[in-house]
């Protein structure tokens, strides 16, 4: 299973976070920590998961959401699930 190139992945993930958390995309980097840096709470996490599912046409489990720490983690998860979907 190889990770696929997803067009504008970083920008699209940042847009999801911007829509929910209100800050500008420029304030978000792949290393930003969702809770400690971006102030995400539990309801934000559920909203993030749903918005990510809709944006990329994926299904994300609660366990996978719970493991997300940084913005880069979301990007990796999207790549991984997209690849799994492609090979299924």
């Amino acid at each position: 299973m190889s990770l696929m190139e997803i067009p504008d992945l970083e920008d699209r993930v940042k847009q999801i976070l911007t829509n929910r958390l209100g800050m500008s995309a420029a304030e978000i980097t792949p290393d930003s920590r969702l809770v400690d840096d971006l102030g995400m709470d539990s309801l934000d996490a559920v909203e993030l998961a749903i918005a990510t599912e809709r944006q990329f046409g994926l299904s994300i489990s609660d366990e996978q959401v719970a493991k997300l720490v940084t913005v880069a983690d979301i990007m990796k998860l999207v790549q991984q699930l997209t690849a799994e979907r492609g090979s299924a």
Binding site: N19, R20, L21, G22, M23, G39
Partner: peptide, 8 residues
């Protein structure tokens, strides 16, 4: 209000 409250 905060940016976050303004969008949520």
């Amino acid at each position: 209000m905060s940016d976050k409250l303004a969008v949520t």
